[in-house]
């Protein structure tokens, strides 16, 4: 379901490929991103530009991905709609993830930190 695009140096941008990230597709999302990590990707940006709704299962999948990367790499978030941003805030996830307004800012920041 996910769409990926690689930026230099070795930054992978992931788009969930669904307008709603919920219990229906959260496991598939997590499994596919985990496959990327197992394949060597460690600098990840999940771009939510096309996601309008996220439930607790979607958030849980995102936390699972963060734990999978651990100290081996970095995971940032970009492009949150106001509703998804509100969901992050209610669940205190804005304290867990680094969030950027758009994917270009996230890529630039991640590239500069390497």
């Amino acid at each position: 379901m996910i769409h990926t695009k690689t930026h230099d140096p070795n930054i992978t941008v992931i788009r969930p490929g669904a307008e709603r990230l919920t219990a229906v597709n959260a496991k598939a999302f997590k499994d596919e991103v985990t496959d990327l990590i197992n394949g060597g990707a460690t600098q990840l940006i999940v771009d939510f530009k096309d996601v309008s709704f996220l439930d607790s299962s979607g958030l849980g999948a995102l936390v699972g991905v963060l734990k999978k990367i651990g100290h081996r790499g970095e995971l940032s978030i970009s492009g949150l709609s106001s509703d998804v941003q509100q969901m992050f805030r209610i669940c205190r996830m804005d304290r867990v993830f680094t969030v950027y307004d758009d994917v270009n800012s996230a890529v630039q920041s991640m590239a500069e930190s390497q």
């Binding site: 607790s56 958030l59 849980g60 936390v63 699972g64 669940c91 205190r92 996830m93 304290r95 867990v96």
Partner: peptide
Amino acid sequence: DLDTIDPLAEEGRGLGLIMQC
């Protein structure tokens, strides 16, 4: 309470969201 849930927990937020929202 969403304030007391482990931030790295992958489950357990649903009922807290209902009560809060």
